[in-house]
Every structure is written in C-alpha cells, then in structure tokens.
Design a protein around this nucleic acid. Sequence first.
DNA 1: CGTCCACAGGAATGACGGGCGG
DNA 2: CCGCCCGTCATTCCTGTGGACG
Length: 424
Amino acid sequence: MDMGGGGEVNNTKILDELFENCVGNTQIFDDREVLRHDYLPDKLPHRGEQIKSLGQTVAPVLKGARCSNIFLYGKTGTGKTAVTKYVLNYLETKAKEFNAPCKVCYVNCRFAGTPYRVFARLCQSLGVFVPFTGLSVGEVFDRFRTGLDGSRVVFIVVLDEVDLLMKTRGDSVLYELTRINEMLCNSKVSLVGISNDLRLKEFLDPRVLSSLSEEEIVFRPYDAGELRNILFERAQLAFREGVLSDGALSLCAALAAAEHGDARRALDLLRVAGEVAERKGVDVIVEEHVREAERRIEHNRVTEALRNATLHSKLVILTLFHLSKAGVRRAITGQIYELYNELCGELGVTPLTQRRVSTLVNELDAIGLLNARVVSMGRYGRTKKIRLEVTRTLVRKVFGDDNRIGCLVKYASKCLSKRTRDGS
DNA sequence: CGTCCACAGGAATGACGGGCGG
DNA sequence: CCGCCCGTCATTCCTGTGGACG
C-alpha cells in the first residue's frame, strides 16, 4: 500500500516533468506536422514540369471528356504522390467550379494489396456498399461497374504503388480497368498508375501496357541542391526562426541525395534531428543532431523489423545468429536449414519445409535484416550465401525479451559447438 | 565438353479462419 | 445453417542452372 502510494507520487513527478518539458519546450518546433510525409505543401519545388504534364493530360476532364491513361515512374520520395494529389485536388475544385462531373479515387496498393480490396475501395468511394470480404472479385467488380455507370461521371482512378499489386497478383486489375470503358454507357474511367519500379513495363501484358501508357511521366531523383530547397521551404514552416543551422540542413540534403535523392528520407532526418535537439534541450539543430537522427532512424527500423517478424522468421535469424557466433560469416541454405530444424525441435515447433524457409530468407533479405545472394560452387552445387546484417548484440537484446524464443538465444550454442566438434 | 551437385524459385494445390447471401 | 468465396500461409512437385570437376 505504502509502496504503491510512494510510487505514484514519483511517477506523477516524472510525468509532470516530461509533459511540461514537452509543452514548454517549444523553442524548436512551430509545426512538426509539416515534416510528415503525408503533408501536402502548397508549393512543390522542382516539379513544375511534371505538374504541367499531368495537368495537361487530365485537363480534358473539365470538358467532360475522358483523359488519357497515364503512368508515373520514379523512385520513392521523388514526389510522384505529392504531384498527383496536388494536381488532382486542384482539378476537382476546378471541376466543381465548371460543373464538370468528375471524381477522383486514390487507392494505395500497399494497403489495398489484392484485386478484391482495390475494387472494394473503388466501390466505397462511389458510396456503393460492399463487405470487406465474402463476395467474389467478379461480384465486387460488377457492383463497381453498375454503381459507376449510374453516377454519370468521369472517374479518375489513381493506383499508387501499383508495382506491388502487379508483382504479387499479376495485371488482372489493370486489365479489367483498362477495358471497363467498353462496358460503360454514362461514365468513363481514366487511370493514373504510379510505380516505384521503373522496370514495371517488363511485367505488363502488352495489351495493358499500350492502353495504360498513353502518357508517361518520369520523376528523376532530386539532387542535393534541390533537396536543400525543399527542406528549406518546409523548415520555414516547421521550425521556429533561427533554429535550424545551415550545416544541418545541408547535411540532411546530402545524406538523402546520396541514397536515392529521396525527399521523404530527407524530411525524416530533419524531423528526427529536430526531436533530438528538442530532447537535449538545446535551441539550435546542428550536424551532430542529424548524425544522431540517422543512427536513430536506422536503429528503430531494425528493432521494429526484428520484433515484428513471425516466429519462423525469427528462428531463421536466430539460426544465423548462432552460426555467426560459431564463426560462420556466410552460411549456405543447407547449413541454415539443418540448424533451423534443430531449433524447431528444441522449441517443439514443427519446422517448415526448406522451400518455405527459402522464401523467408528472401523476405528477410528484402527488409535488410540479412543479406542473401545466389552463388554457384560449381561441382558442389548452386546455393545462397547468407549473412546476418544485424549486430548480434541487437539480436540478443530484442530476442531476449521474447519469452517464446528467448531461451534459445543461449541454448543453441551448445548443440552447435557439439556439432562442429563432431564435424571436425 | 558433358556431368552433376545443391539448391533456386515458379506453379499448382491444400488447409484454415473468416464472412457472405440465401 | 449451408455452400461458397475470400486472403493467407504452407506444402508438394517441379524444372532450371552456374560452373568446378572429371
């Protein structure tokens, strides 16, 4: 009782301090929302050309005509989504002004990752009710079509990150949408496809390709100077005056430019650097804070990825952890599968097949937790060489908290050392 | 120059928990 | 309640392959 009461007082004190710091400590930020990537600024520096092209393409909509389908290519953080939203938002307000019946539906294929969900999303934007599961894809598509035809509009469908949908589900959605106009009497559909992958064309059915790529816009990565300008514009709104040092600004731009010219990355760096400075209680953001931000972002990313991995993915990581501890820098598939099996046995979990583990390895490679590359060892077959890309300390720390497999962090080293003795 | 290792990775299929309309 | 379809994860079966070795 007494202990509880004492703790409470202490906790309140801690929280008070924390909250007051947060409220009182406004010498860094004016409005940090401006630095989030879903924020749409009213100026988009260095994208005038793209805005113009997209505007030209969609302009016929204001006369009630269907506009050409258009495809936007470019790496992440090159402003594709921002330009699209910017132009289409404006188009919608203009359409209202001119009484042109037009509607825009924005679908992010990362979140609507299946044909069903894409069509369901389109239905929803038309006010047509569909359950989130239970119907056949064809049924949802039909509802969308009839709903659309009834509403007598030019309907612009934006499919963002459409490459993700293509790679896992093929081009059936795009195929249906490019052909839908043949079945409509009162409405028309135009497509805006946005892809992060410049090679997407290679995966497309030629019929889809020709109708989809009536127009194309390529978004080049920003260079360091352009990123600097973008950051500068945002920093004006985000930070109080004089908070951001010139050096910190340039460093954010330079780091992001070195990666892909990714503006999102640059903004993240700037925001986190601001938070670092805020927490330190200083009132100027300097280069060191940006460096710290870089480390922190990476650390968070990896920790989250490790923590959120599925049981078997964790076991694969753990296998690599033990192999690397035993001095195996680059393990091959066979080695991994063998030890993985053993770990599963120890946990009382039925192991997955080697085929499945192989795709898990590929997935982990894609996230960057490990590095896998196929090599041929000639006579001795063809395999993947796999290396852990995370420090063992971090693995130990994150998995140590996981009560399910935490025990294995220590255990397996025994059976591994036994095996290496037997082997040699 | 062919063989053959040790897998890679595609395709088809199945199991499962969930939700629908009738 | 049934029969059907959904998406997800996993299995099974399969064909493909780079290059050291003989």
